[in-house]
Nucleic acid binder design. Sequence first.
DNA 1: TTGGGGAACTAGCGCGCGCAAGTCCCGCGA
DNA 2: TCGCGGGACTTGCGCGCGCTAGTTCCCCAA
Lengths: 333, 333
Amino acid sequence: MSQSTSNRRVTAADIARSLGISRATVGFVLNETPGQTISEATRSRVLDEAKRLGYRPHIAARALASGRTRIVLLVLPDWPLDFNLRRNIEEASLALDEAGYALITYTPHPTGLSRPLWETLQPDVVMSMAAFAPGVAESIRASGVTRLIPDPEMPVADEYSEDGPVLQLQHLFDLGHRSIAFAGSADPRVADLVELRRQRAGEAAESLGLPPLRFADIELTDASAAAAIHDWRSSGVTAVAAYNDDVAASLVGAALRAGISVPRELSVVGHDDTPLASMFEPRLSTIHMNTVGLGRYLAALALSAVEERPVPSAGPELQLAVVPRDSSAPAPL
Amino acid sequence: MSQSTSNRRVTAADIARSLGISRATVGFVLNETPGQTISEATRSRVLDEAKRLGYRPHIAARALASGRTRIVLLVLPDWPLDFNLRRNIEEASLALDEAGYALITYTPHPTGLSRPLWETLQPDVVMSMAAFAPGVAESIRASGVTRLIPDPEMPVADEYSEDGPVLQLQHLFDLGHRSIAFAGSADPRVADLVELRRQRAGEAAESLGLPPLRFADIELTDASAAAAIHDWRSSGVTAVAAYNDDVAASLVGAALRAGISVPRELSVVGHDDTPLASMFEPRLSTIHMNTVGLGRYLAALALSAVEERPVPSAGPELQLAVVPRDSSAPAPL
DNA sequence: TTGGGGAACTAGCGCGCGCAAGTCCCGCGA
DNA sequence: TCGCGGGACTTGCGCGCGCTAGTTCCCCAA
């Protein structure tokens, strides 16, 4: 089963020799090379012998001969991935597996001191869930990788409409709140997304006939939450839509410490439905996201870039829902 | 600078041809092959020409010829990594970079449906921060990787003494608590670590002259926290050492919902000092861990397995400290 | 003057595989 | 009977690199 008596690795040539046939035939069988006709008898003999000897193709040799590493590198942001995203990555991994590709996830180190993996791995495709940060696409190209997803050269319309903030506003509006603030994050890594969500929240407020939103960026580790709350309270704000659950938790904590009751005096809605949201006390109302089929979509995208496959037509479906918990309640009179 | 006019990739042979020297010489220069003497003039000509042509070694070819992929696979647990650990991984990545190896982090998918990366990447070394789960080491071996760290065949004394629970107990003891419970996690993925910490807590209690600890395993998503607290309270427990911050948060939340004041009536200490601990309200007292030099140590370990390098003598230094916050206070009278 | 030795190179094999181009033979239609 | 179309293979090159086993030349000691 496993390795033979010698500790040399088993090669396709070993199978051929042991069966008294040519190496090419073995290769054709193992790769199911299209356009080659192999008798069923030979086919099964090869397969059996391969299993018996414990044959395992040498990926470096294959990569050298075929000119492709069959590696797809997925660049991930450096914040913790939520469960939904992780499941989608597994889904992508599975789909690529079936096509003979390996998905490797990679979070570039913030300091940028170590060599990026796209240089050392020479993957066939480098993909990312968001646009590549400035300079990154160039770095990838310079390392010889030609297939980037999304390709900065041909910018597609943004895949997702950020509708979470709209749901936050609607939820608070339905509870009777009319003076609402938006709390962003001061973390520069997520500045773009914060700005996007803030804008969507602003639009939602306008279409609900509310006055322009007040807003502030919250730093999780300092007193900025307390300051923002003090500021907002003094101008009559009764509810806050937060950029994410961490910010929401920070706000609620600051409010409680300031003696402000949540949700009776102040409602707060988070975003992303992280584990934190359900563990916090009071449990945080938030927005749950579920991107059904994202993984399969990513895999199909990668395969279409690297083989003769069609670009997937239908993108993943984004499901959003308000999760009402204990941090939001009807507006005080 | 970058690729030449043709879009064929630049090879070492191109450099040789363009310089009118042999491929071998080029190889010797680029690899600084020991035992080869190359004139300084030739050396710099090769280096210059390589840069001019934008030469980039073909890793698959190199792997094929040398018989090693120069890949180190680091298997990570599937829970979010804290900042300290991430920094250590970067440190390891950097050290391996310098030695010409690439560090790839990998979190096996819980379902186990997709092919593990050690099969598809054929790394030189597979390492893990904890012992390999049952069956995993066998799977790695079966894929042809011979260098595992830690090697299950030669079990070393456990690298780290789990002293966090000792600090938790000491902290609570210092605050006057004499009836203390330990809260584990019902998550089977961390069962071993839970058990280890529970034992250490038990030993600490004994050496402090306390009665045996009561304990329960908490499920984050259900009512087990409330049940445990109710149980403990009725038998006079005034403080809880929790396996980690998530469990601590769960307990504090349940206590507050049950009308039990934290920390006045019940003290809770977490473990790991995750962001959650500082964001929670009340902010959680916890144990902060800092493993100085872990990254360099891991890198040295990997290199010693794969090259003629000495096994690092000194392991990383583990720094532990109690972070007293608002979830622990002097015992009620 | 000779020859030993080392500095500075070159020739070329082999790593394991994919695949293009050939070879052989058998069956079948004219 | 001949030819011809494929089915079922085989031969062998080339991918790019590491590295062993040379080869050449020159310097210096005997």
